[in-house]
Write a protein that binds this DNA or RNA. Structure first.
Lengths: 220, 220
DNA sequence: TTATACCACGAACACCTGTTCGGTGTCAAG
DNA sequence: CTTGACACCGAACAGGTGTTCGTGGTATAA
């Protein structure tokens, strides 16, 4: 069933008010902002919004209404974010600008905000923008943003940024330690073959935990 | 300056109450749950919490409290974000579960929250989880989350989910309309060759605007 | 016409809510 | 001891707040 224009305005006002003030409005606050003089009319329309399932009401409680649905969580801070420092760029030919713990703490520049749902473990993480398409093997494209974690406890199979000392090159691969100091570097693309290196010849610069790619128009 | 145990309990109660009920508590609600009989005592401690910068108070307004926790930025309002309905899965062999406008409005299930910085245009967008690695060509892996937009204004070069009618298959490619109803489907991986199809033989199901990949451990 | 929803208005009521004030006890500094 | 800061209590007050009730206008259907 459709909503009247008045009901839509009420709904939007509740939404905006709650977001801005951090609490739902009272009946009279709704009325005065939407242009309704009588509290009973507001009450009447609120009941309709509740019947339509757009809001929830709690009886005889001041400000006892809340917006239903996914957006509601947002309004009261039920979604928590992690701010990840955007440290710079990563390219094949240059090592990663490794951050210090101190630097991460005090970082005050650009950040990438992600929900804690996506980043359950945000200790010592930082983000880099990928330059060039040298990491296509790892399913990572030019312009992608990779979120990395400082390489403390790298486990077999972790996706890591590896600095190849002999080639002076950074690459992203899954890392498996094997016997005799040998390390297997497996591209993420499962159709590609692994690559082997000596453990003394590589340096693990970070563990990739997340990749974000924004698609924008490309010059054909 | 440290907080008394009472003040900590008040603070935690406000936090929990707000999250659960969608509105801040009243002074008396705080008192009865924390074990304080007098409203003035609650008021007294609230002023201390406000002085310490842990909450904000608004004078002479019912439920005029809000938390300003350590993640101040991440709380309501300071980070502007959009919630994207997580509609289901996308696989090569099945068409996309296309949402209606109405359905997107009222959606109440799982969502993916992203900052507006990452999603400047959130009209008619929805998210799908990729099943299978049939879209490796498009640099998209099993388990990735793709954010798509309803295909209203598809421009040349847009990355689209295309349903190939003759093959009964969904694929992700960059789409270029060419002369004579011919459409060029270009894999995202620039090392791969394009693919051509008849425009009447394909159906564009959505435009990919963003991809998120969480890296978890893989069974070797 | 009559009936019936639907939508709106204003007023009144009872309770809720933030604020204020006088008073009590404790503890450390003077 | 006296003083003052601190933490707390109970009570009262003025205004806020959800609810209810009587009323009336406007469509649409019988």
């Amino acid at each position: 069933m459709g909503l009247s224009e008045r009901q839509q305005r009420i709904y939007e006002f509740i939404n905006r008010f709650t977001r801005e003030k951090g609490r739902p409005p009272t009946i009279r606050e709704i009325g005065s902002h939407v242009g309704i003089s009588s509290t009973s009319v507001v009450n009447y329309n609120l009941n309709i919004l509740a019947r339509e399932g757009l809001i929830q009401r709690e009886k005889e409680v001041s400000r006892g209404l809340r917006i239903v649905g996914a957006q509601a969580k947002a309004l009261v801070g039920e979604i928590s974010f992690v701010q990840i420092p955007l440290l710079g760029k990563i390219a094949a030919g240059t090592p990663i600008p490794l951050p210090t713990d101190e630097g991460l703490m005090r970082y005050d520049g650009e950040t990438l905000a992600l929900t804690r749902e996506l980043m359950p473990d945000s200790e010592g993480v930082f983000a880099l923008e990928v330059k060039g398409n040298s990491m296509i093997d790892a399913l990572i494209n030019d312009g992608d943003i990779v979120v990395m974690k400082k390489p403390q406890a790298v486990q077999n199979g972790d996706m890591c940024a590896v600095w190849l000392k002999d080639k002076n090159e950074t690459t992203l691969k899954r890392v498996y330690r094997e016997h005799n100091n040998r390390v297997r570097l497996q591209p993420m693309n499962p159709t590609l073959k692994p690559f082997y290196a000596d453990a003394r010849n590589i340096e693990i610069q970070g563990k990739v935990v997340l990749v974000v790619r924004q698609l924008r128009k490309l010059p054909a």
